[in-house]
Simulated scan of single mutants.
Amino acid sequence: MSQDFNAELHARPSIYFAGPAFVEHLAFMSRGQNDPVIDRLKTDADALHIRTQVERHTEFVTITRVVQLDADAHEWPVSATSSLGTDGISEADLICRIGLLVNGAAPAELGPSLKQLGFQETAASSIGGGAAVVCSDFRVRPGEGSRIALFNNDLNAYRLGRMVRRILEIETYRSIALMGLPEARRLAPLLSEFDARLIELSDRNLTIPTSEHKPLLDEISALSARVISATAETRNRFGATAAYAQIVEERITELRETHVPGFQRFGVFVARRFKPAVRTCAATALRLDQLSRAATHLVDLLQTRIQMEIELQNTIQIQAMADRAATQVKIQRAVEGFSVIAISYYLLSLLKVVFETIDHAGYHISPLVMLVSIPIVIATVALTVLRVKHALEHG
């Protein structure tokens, strides 16, 4: 595993070369390990004896070719651009195509040379502590892509290769980072719709009666699902945009730019037009996250409100049940009292019949016995009822 980690340090080698050259760079979305386009481009490079470097990144592939020139080119080498065709690569998969011309030392007046090369409104910077000058108008020409000119004042083959690599990476990562911008533009009207809908649902949550809570909860849940779906669809793209933008900024810093009189700096031109797009993507991602949180919070608030009302209803029902139970207890106690009286009455009536029968039989019983038996019978019945009740409660 340590070998794999160490190999990663050497996974992006530069193509080292010296002297005038034309470097063509192509970046397109990856279609798997067995891509016939890559095989074709490698085969063409071998047939033309052109140095070619293929790099597989996480989601895209880059191919870089170097064609050595016999002398400085005062016009754009159109014939050289045909060495790297885009046959088999759809417009949707193509990220960027760059032609980079490397000439000798920069002339005292850049304007005429850049005009001969077909540049318009050019940005230029002295890079590498004055060791080279990089120029570009950042215009994409049909069939050629964008053009960059590098005037080599004092770069050896190794430094030149690394500098060219940084410039190509700036353009490549800048282009692929901007793939998030169409998504941000597509989401802009949806986010406005989500905002308005969320405000409407929030206002309704404050005023609706209890009977309409369930439909409102369904509507809020549906909105939350749409926001979460949009977030999931664009999370990777916006995350990649942020990562690629950071790489672009790092590569611009590594150029160590200084100002060329009469021209806007290369890195400043990129940053002024690139950063607003990146910020738009970041703001869209943040807005999606905030909408998702707000919708979830509104769902929680409504669920809490519904739960509190349910608990209030349960409390009222429990109180009503407790009142009914208390009334039943009172009724039960009243019934128990009546039961003692009724049973005692029947027992005393039975004893009276017994005493009268005995008296008719000729055996006289004192009325005091009947009088004494009354409290005894009542006490006995009451004790019996209490024991039965106790047995039922603890049985």
Rank of each mutant, 00 (worst) to 15 (best):
S2M: 10
S2H: 11
D4E: 12
F5K: 12
F5C: 06
N6W: 10
N6R: 10
A7M: 13
L9A: 13
H10G: 09
P13W: 11
S14Y: 08
S14G: 03
A18L: 04
A18F: 04
G19W: 06
P20V: 00
A21E: 09
V23C: 05
E24V: 14
F28S: 02
F28G: 00
M29C: 13
G32C: 07
Q33P: 15
P36W: 08
D39V: 08
T43R: 06
T43Y: 05
L48R: 12
R51V: 07
V54A: 07
V61N: 02
I63C: 09
Q68Y: 06
A71H: 15
P77F: 05
P77M: 05
V78H: 11
V78K: 13
A80V: 09
S83R: 07
D87H: 04
G88C: 11
S90Q: 09
C96L: 10
C96I: 12
G99P: 03
G99T: 04
L100T: 01
G104L: 11
G104A: 08
A105T: 06
A108R: 08
G111I: 07
K115S: 07
Q116H: 13
L117I: 10
A123N: 06
S125F: 01
S126C: 07
I127M: 00
F138D: 00
R139S: 13
R141Y: 02
P142D: 10
G143V: 06
E144M: 08
R147H: 04
N152T: 12
D154G: 13
R159L: 15
L160A: 07
R162Y: 09
R162E: 09
R166M: 00
R166D: 01
I167N: 00
I170D: 01
R174C: 02
S175I: 01
A177K: 01
M179S: 06
A184Y: 08
F194G: 02
L198A: 10
E200D: 12
N205I: 05
I208S: 05
P209Q: 04
E212L: 10
L216R: 05
D218K: 10
E219W: 01
S221A: 15
A222Y: 02
L223D: 03
R226P: 09
V227F: 02
V227Q: 08
S229H: 15
R235M: 12
N236D: 11
Q246F: 01
Q246C: 03
I247N: 03
T253M: 03
T253N: 02
T253W: 00
E254Y: 04
E254N: 01
T258A: 02
V260E: 04
F263L: 03
Q264M: 09
V268G: 01
V270N: 00
R272L: 05
A283S: 13
A283M: 08
L286T: 15
R287T: 03
D289R: 14
Q290C: 06
L302C: 10
Q303R: 13
T304R: 08
I306L: 10
Q307E: 06
M308F: 05
E311P: 02
L312N: 10
I316E: 12
I318Y: 05
A320E: 14
R324E: 15
A326G: 06
T327V: 15
K330N: 14
I331W: 04
F338G: 09
F338H: 15
S339Y: 07
S344E: 07
L347A: 14
S349Q: 04
D359Q: 12
D359S: 14
H364R: 12
I374M: 13
I374N: 13
I378C: 13
T380Y: 08
V381M: 03
A382E: 15
L383N: 11
K389V: 12
A391C: 13
